[in-house]
Structure formats: structure tokens, C-alpha cells
Amino acid sequence: MRDAVASLRTGAGRYECGIWLGDLPAAKRISFLDRLVVERLDRKCRDVLNVLERCGGDWAQALYTMLFRAMGGNRNRESYIDLASRATYQMVLRERGDIELVEALLLGTAGMLEGCYFDDYIARLHDHYLYLARKYGIVPMRAGEWARAGIRAQNRPVTRIVQLASFVARNDFIFDRVAGCRTREDVHALFDTEVSGYWATHYVPDGSGERCPRRIGAEKADLLAINAVVPVMFAYGQTTGKGALKDAAFDLLGDIPAENNAIVRSWSGMGVPVRSALDSQALLQLRNEYCTRGRCTDCKVGKSIIKVRDKAFSFR
């Protein structure tokens, strides 16, 4: 057994377990992966409940925070969470009748309007923000808290914040709408809001030029579903005892394409079929929680491989 474990740990960095997973009968492989995705959802559920506690038990604010967190990606995640805590969902609800006020609230709180009063639209947003900051006692972030270098244009903070402004201003009862998502089409319809006209040609305030994305794209909407919509649905279902909502969250993952990242591509390259986000989330769980930590003897996949290898060794 010791040799089998050592061999597994050595091969973990090269995704060698993928060869075994890929060769399994489909039903058994799906069973393994489904267990892993439930583990991942349980972990994400704990993340949501931690956010909920910081939000004083307010599910709408917790969802709002999770959406901001998911919009940020890895490099700006904490900055987006900070923004959501300073410019809260309750503030947005009070101002959502005017998209300019919501843009001013979010961009100003993010520190994105300081020193940018060179055209009429941005000057107006800045004036709106000064009023809102006094009204709500907002302490703004510093622009330097946001990572920008090496981030693709469509993922720049200003672009994503403006898209968030459009989404939260033009959707009332966002918690109910999120909890009602059952298909990928529902998710795309939820996030299909168009930014105001100024931002169609501006990636940054007063920086006109290239045509900019008017909507959250399909790929980003899928990631928001995977990292915010599904975890919040699952956590709310678990907390309230609504098992049907947990099942709906699980099924929604099955309707969303798999993520396209280095880890998922590596598993696929070793022969593991990746059908949907259910599989990609399971494989991320396998890699991050077991393979990289050398936890082969805690892993159901690892245990099965060790059992097979020990049995083969005993017949020599």
C-alpha cells in the first residue's frame, strides 16, 4: 500500500489519476464526480454563510456581495467585496430609479471618479457622488486598491462596475430572480442588461475610443452562475430546509458549460470527459482539495486506485 500511495502522490502533479478516471464506466465516474461536486457546494455554502453573517443575516445583501465577489475574479475579489460593503444594496434600492445615481454611487465609492471631471457626463457623476457620499456617510476606496495591470479590457474594474450598476438598477427583487433560475437561459436573461450609452465607447471615465461591451457576456454570466447564483441557491436551500432549491442549484450546474481553465483542460487532456460545470467543479475540487495537498488516502478516487493496485499486487 505504501508504494501505491507514494506513486499516487508523485503522479498527482501530472493529473495521472485522470487516466484511471477516464477509463471508468460512465456511471461509476459520474458517481465519483457527483460526490466531489457536493463537497464543493458544501464548501461554497460555508463561504455564503460567512458572508451572510457579515451582512447581519440579510440575504439580499449577501447575494449582492457574492455577485460582486464573483465579478471580480481572483485578482480583485477583495476589492469588489469591499465595494459591496461600502455601497450597499439598500443604498442601491433607494437610488435605482436613476441609473446615473447608481453608477455614481458605485464608481465614486470605488474611487474611480477622483480626478476625472473632463467631460460633462463624468463631471455630473462626480457631483452625484459627492451628494450621495454626504447622504450615506460613505468613505470611498482608493483607486490604487484595484489591480489593473494585465487584466483584459473587458474585465477592467470600471467596465465591470458599470455592468453591475446596470444589473442592480434594472432588476428589482434580485434575490427572488436569482432563486428562480433553473436553466442557463434563465441565467443569461437575468444578466442581460445594457449599460448606459456613455459606456458603449468608454472603458474608463473620459477615455473614449474603442467600442466597449454593452452587456455582461455569456461566458461571464456562466461564471456568475457557478460562483454566485448556484452557491447562494444551495446555501439558502440548506439553511431553510428547502431541498428542492438545493436540487435546482445542482441541476443548474449541469446545464452550464464547463469552465475553460488550465486545471480543467489538464484533466480533460488525461482522458476525463467533462460534460458540464458539474464535472469541472468536481475536478477543481479533486485538484485543489486532494491532489495538491497530497491527500490521496482521504480521496475516494485515490482509495479506489490504491485498492485496485493492492489487489493486483497480491496476485503476483
Rank of each mutant, 00 (worst) to 15 (best):
Ala258Trp: 03
Asp98Thr: 11
Asp120Gln: 13
Lys44Cys: 13
Ser166Asn: 09
Ile30Tyr: 08
Glu210Leu: 15
Arg96Tyr: 12
Ser276Pro: 00
Leu36Cys: 14
Glu16Ala: 09
Arg295Lys: 12
Gly217Ser: 02
Gly294Val: 04
Asn260Ser: 15
Leu125Ser: 10
Thr240Gly: 05
Asp119His: 15
Gly97Trp: 07
Val5Lys: 13
Leu33Met: 10
Asp82Ala: 15
Asp47Lys: 13
Pro231Cys: 05
Lys220Cys: 10
Ala228Trp: 05
Asn171Trp: 08
Leu286Trp: 14
Arg287Pro: 00
Gln154Trp: 08
Ala110Gly: 14
Leu190Ile: 05
Glu95Arg: 12
Glu16Met: 15
Arg214Val: 12
Asp279Gly: 04
Gly209Ser: 03
Arg293Trp: 03
Arg46Cys: 05
Thr183Tyr: 11
Arg156Tyr: 12
Val229Cys: 02
Phe191Tyr: 11
Cys17His: 06
Thr65Ser: 10
Gly22Ser: 00
Tyr290His: 04
Gly18Met: 03
Leu252Val: 08
Gly207His: 13
Trp267Thr: 00
Gln238Phe: 02
Leu283Trp: 05
Thr240Phe: 13
Arg43Leu: 06
Phe118Val: 05
Asp206Gln: 04
Arg86Trp: 08
Asp310Val: 11
Met112Arg: 06
Val162Phe: 13
Glu145Gln: 12
Ile263Arg: 05
Ala200Thr: 03
Ala27Pro: 01
Leu278Asp: 05
Gly243Cys: 06
Tyr131Gln: 10
Gln61Glu: 03
Ala84Ile: 09
Trp199His: 00
Arg211Thr: 07
Pro205Ala: 11
Leu125Pro: 07
Ile216Asp: 01
Ala147Val: 13
Phe32Cys: 00
Lys220Ala: 15
Asn261Thr: 08
Cys116Ser: 06
Ala110Cys: 06
Pro205Trp: 08
Ala153Leu: 15
Lys242Thr: 07
Ala110His: 14
Thr65Leu: 08
Gln90Ala: 15
Arg160His: 00
Leu52Ser: 09
Ile30Arg: 12
Leu190Gly: 03
Leu24Arg: 10
Leu33Ser: 01
Val230Glu: 00
Ala225Leu: 02
Leu190His: 00
Glu219Ala: 15
Gly254Leu: 02
Cys17Phe: 12
Asn260Lys: 14
Val272Tyr: 01
Ala123Ile: 01
Val230Gln: 03
